[in-house]
Nucleic acid binder design. Structure first.
Length: 411
RNA sequence: CGGGGCGUAGCACAGUUGGUAGCGCGCGGCGUUUGGGACGCCGAGGUCGCAGGUUCAAGUCCUGUCGCCCCGACCA
């Protein structure tokens, strides 16, 4: 990509709307644009990060037999009425809209109801189970208060996976597989060390659900953990019964602020029962399908990662999430020309700063702000050594690499 | 939804007792510059969130409304 082709530009001053450092950088660097409180646009750079996150999630979910689909945003009230979640008293985060011909529709806050309803067409026998559909979809939640930049928004991109199983046992097996897949995802996203599977409040069919919480100062949640972090729980379930259950004492727990980056939930037959999703067993009986749901907030993850990884100069993307791997710049006519030669054919991985009139200092500042993993500088100095200068954005370490070797690395 | 703060140029801000709106960054032009956000000169850009009201006169005072930020509550 050529810097000159960006229609976005970096801003020196952070928009006053944002207080979280990561969110300020995302806006200053042109990754996102704010439309309203809790409503953001993903600009080309931000979209590439989003797509990179999605791809990692997609790969891990496909490995455990899940299948991607894309459901509608406009939702029919009918299945929601059957589960008693259409009522604004019961679900206060609904956005509603009306049909020109009259009648009301909802804007998807989640998809248990429509998907359960949809599955009635495809599941009628034990032979049809299990099914594990998932999607990356835009959700709408009318939060009373949006906050923390893109961490808590009214419109957001979510990966939601749903499981349809024969019974509790087969459900539990898949549930555990999802938990393992999530752990791999967070490791690949670069936040594995600070992300914990926590005990959270359950529901009708299960004592606990699990959340995945990433420790960060800008998190909205409080988590508690024991010495070796083998037991981690949410503040909401910190009570005597739970402590006894998990075999830990309150005094030995420490707390930290964290952001929820995923959750997995046993739904049981709550929705299938209400909506009438049943299957025929081998011996001809009717049984409700046993369900689970599993979410990952993709756009929130970008916010969490931006926040966790940034420093006082700007964003610091892990290699697999960065919009581009290299920020390439030449100094002086000769350096710029050499940079162009190296750039040719590597438009997907290299961002070349081809602005001739901009001083190197400004390019360095922009390179730091944008946060590509490696900054590559070609100058008179490096050319003397027949090398390029590669600086690791994270560590700040710089080394000279022979130009020919770097060309090979690119290829 | 309770409490607090705030809407003035693309961004960040100033604007005194009410008297025809300003600085910085960014943007356009010319020139000088090019290893950590350069410099000089010239220039463009605003119905002061919106709607009423008070007044000879409103960015400034009053009422309403929309929006934004923070704390709290809320978040299967």
């Amino acid at each position: 990509m050529r810097y000159k082709h960006f229609f976005t530009k970096t801003l020196r001053a952070a928009p006053k709307d944002e207080t979280a450092r990561g969110a300020q950088y995302l806006m200053r660097a042109g990754y996102v644009y704010k439309e309203l409180a809790g409503v953001y646009d993903y600009l080309p750079l931000g979209l590439r990060v989003i797509e990179n996150i999605k791809q990692i999630v997609r790969e891990e979910l496909d490995k455990i037999g899940s299948q991607e689909l894309l459901m509608s945003t406009l939702q029919n009230p009918e299945p929601w009425q059957k589960t008693d979640r259409w009522d604004i008293e019961k679900m206060d985060i609904w956005f509603r809209t009306t049909l020109a011909a009259g009648g009301e529709l909802g804007l998807a806050p989640t998809h248990e109801e429509p998907l359960t309803n949809l599955m009635k067409t495809y599941i009628s026998s034990y032979k049809d189970l299990p099914a594990y559909p998932y999607q990356f979809q835009t959700k709408f939640r009318n939060e009373l208060r949006a906050k923390s930049g893109i961490m808590r928004t009214r419109e957001f991109i979510m990966k939601d996976l749903y499981s349809f199983s024969l019974d509790r046992e087969s459900h539990q097996k898949f549930y555990d597989e999802v938990a393992e897949a999530y752990k791999k995802i967070y490791i690949r996203l670069g936040i594995g060390d600070d992300t914990y599977q926590t005990f959270a409040s359950g529901g009708v069919f299960c004592k606990y659900s699990h959340e995945f919480q990433t420790i960060t100062e800008v998190g909205e949640d409080l988590i508690w953990f024991n010495e070796d972090k083998s037991v981690v729980l949410n503040d909401e379930v910190l009570n005597d019964e739970v402590l006894k259950d998990l075999g830990v004492k309150r005094e030995e727990l420490k707390s930290a602020k964290a952001a929820e980056v995923g959750n997995i939930f046993t739904l049981g037959t709550k929705y299938s029962g209400a909506i009438g999703l049943e299957y025929d067993t081998k011996d001809g009986k009717k049984e409700p399908v046993f369900m689970g749901s599993y979410g990952i907030g993709v756009s929130r993850l970008m916010g969490v990662i931006a926040e966790k990884m940034c420093d006082d100069k700007g964003l610091v993307w892990p290699e697999h999430l960065a919009p581009y791997k290299y920020y390439l710049m030449g100094i002086g006519d000769e350096g710029m020309q050499k940079a162009e030669e190296l750039y040719a054919g590597h438009e997907e991985t290299v961002l070349i700063d081809d602005r001739a009139e901009v001083h190197p200092g400004e390019k360095f500042a922009d390179a730091d702000l944008l946060g590509m993993p490696y900054r590559v500088v070609i100058s008179e100095n490096s050319l003397k050594e027949d090398s390029v200068e590669v600086t690791d954005r994270k560590t700040g370490e710089t080394k000279l690499i022979k130009t020919a070797d770097f060309a090979k690395e690119l290829a």
